[in-house]
């Protein structure tokens, strides 16, 4: 265990607290860590807006992310496997994908609201777009970098195309797929808050909670919300990396 990984962030917080205490940092712009901690506590107990406690915001945001993220996995994974496998299909789809991919997910918000209205569906759609491309591209790449000799070996052992798909391409591409999932889930999470800034007008959602705190000029609550956001993103990444290590012993 490298203790400096823990000590240095604590030290930084302490310095920040000192600067706030001696008045270098105005509390109206950047509240002290202690004030943010108090803000976090009020988010948990009272809620923002009052009566809307933090855990419901978190659950509602996670619900949107998971809906969008899993639909991205369900579509991008088989599509990536097929694109990695067939040169023809790749050549047909690649220009279309490369045309749509540079459009930021947030640019889809107006059309998403028009299509799905304001709610879980439109937010999930935006998140879907954010997660879809990294998973698709990494899966395709993962399949393409499988040593062709493994496919030859499987074919000489009488494997059908379906066998090769399930027993060679999918397991062989797993490391890249997980990389894609890690990137995709990170982008999902980032896209979510922006989608909630504009896409949620009432109810729950971390992005909506932060925007409400801004409306009433509460930087402590804004920072507390951002802290929660970072913490969840961090935990999810740790979790995915843990799964990665469990699954991929071979790389």
């Amino acid at each position: 265990m490298n203790w400096s990984r823990i000590i240095i962030p604590i030290l930084l917080l302490a310095i920040w607290q000192c600067f706030s205490f001696i008045g270098v940092l105005p509390a109206s712009k950047l509240p002290s860590p202690a004030e943010i901690a108090v803000g976090l506590e009020s988010l948990i107990t009272t809620g923002m807006p009052p009566g809307h406690p933090l855990h419901w915001h978190i659950l509602s945001s996670l619900n949107r992310v998971l809906a969008g993220f899993f639909s991205a996995v369900v579509v991008a994974l088989p599509m990536g496997l097929v694109m990695g496998w067939s040169r023809t299909i790749r050549q047909v789809l690649e220009p279309i994908i490369e045309f749509i991919r540079p459009i930021p997910p947030l640019a889809w918000i107006p059309i998403a609201i028009l299509w799905f209205g304001i709610g879980v569906q439109s937010a999930a759609f935006i998140i879907f777009l954010g997660a879809f491309f990294p998973i698709l591209l990494n899966t395709t790449y993962g399949v393409r970098r499988i040593d062709p000799i493994l496919i030859d070996a499987a074919r000489t052992l009488n494997a059908s195309s379906l066998d090769i798909f399930i027993k060679v391409l999918l397991p062989g591409a797993i490391p890249s797929i997980i990389t894609g999932i890690r990137i995709g889930i990170g982008i999902s999470w980032m896209t979510l808050i922006a989608a909630e800034f504009t896409g949620v007008k009432y109810g729950y959602g971390l992005g909506y909670m932060i925007m409400t705190a801004r409306d009433i000029q509460r930087p402590d609550l804004i920072f507390a919300g951002m802290f929660v956001f970072g913490g969840i993103g961090f935990s999810v990444d740790v979790f995915v990396r843990f799964i990665e290590r469990k699954i991929i012993r071979w790389r």
Partner: peptide, 15 residues
């Protein structure tokens, strides 16, 4: 099924 092949670089499935 009557023919089997062994490859130069072993071609084992690493996973």
């Amino acid at each position: 099924e009557r023919v089997g092949m062994v490859f130069q670089e072993f071609a084992l499935f690493p996973w």
